[in-house]
Design a protein around this nucleic acid. Structure first.
Lengths: 135, 135
DNA sequence: ATAATTGCAAAAGCTTTGCACGGAA
DNA sequence: TTCCGTGCAAAGCTTTTGCAATTAT
């Protein structure tokens, strides 16, 4: 479902509540695989053929600006999106390309130039599933 | 100059010592701005017009495989490359797009799924220069 | 009503690929 | 000499843009 948090965040920024915005938030909030724009596009296309890439990117931009989802730069091939705003990192599997959440992280950076608005921790390696020959 | 470390790393992997490899290593080792493929291409083009993008990307791939440079995913627009393999993070300025090194970082992650080969810490915000109205 | 948002198509930017020529070992 | 690497051009992907039609408020 479309969370109350998202509705209020959109309204607070003066954005309208539209079908693409509802659908994309809903899809992301029910998904822990950090979908890319292409994956979001394909999923929504399967529900409504009149869905465009421009809308996906416009919508994601609005959702990021509203603080509803976060854009992560873990995948070297494309941007991915995460509705979990809590302090956590991401593990990218160099073999299968999956992105996993990593909690229990503790970071201290002392040398601070400029104003930090956000930080991301990306781990790269081979995931459990691939190590076991699953993929 | 072309460091001894780089020559030995290339030879160890069975790669040949060629002009593009020398030039790109030299450029990166004398540069702390984390150049992108395009910036590397432009710099080398100014020395030799018969330089191609394919060579830049092939070369960077070889250099990463040889452990001479590191590919970083800090810039949302493109990959950047860093000859400093030490444990440090990067700050991306959302206004001017510059990438700065951040040392003195302390990271502890407890929950480890899979085999971690590398990690990257990316900070996003507004850099000192932009805060002061420099850019 | 009216201003924001969508959908389409085209384009822009980064990166990869295939293949003939040239150069390092 | 032999094979790896380069250079070129073309193509592939992700993402952006311009504009007319549509929709939320």
């Amino acid at each position: 479902m479309f969370s109350q948090r998202a509705i209020e965040a959109l309204k607070k920024e003066g954005f309208k509540i539209t079908k693409p915005r509802k659908w994309i938030v809903e899809f992301l909030e029910n998904n822990t695989s950090h979908p890319s724009a292409v994956e979001i596009y394909e999923q929504l296309r399967s529900k409504d053929k009149s869905f465009s890439f421009a809308t996906v990117y416009n919508t994601l931009d609005v959702l990021v600006k509203s603080g509803i989802v976060r854009q992560i730069s873990t995948d070297p091939k494309c941007s991915r999106f995460d509705p979990d705003l809590s302090n956590h990192g991401h593990f990218y599997c160099n073999k299968c390309g999956a992105v996993y959440d990593i909690f229990d992280i503790d970071i201290n950076f002392n040398e601070l130039k400029g104003k930090v608005e956000e930080y991301q921790l990306n781990l790269f390696g081979i995931c459990e599933k691939c190590l076991k020959g699953g993929n």
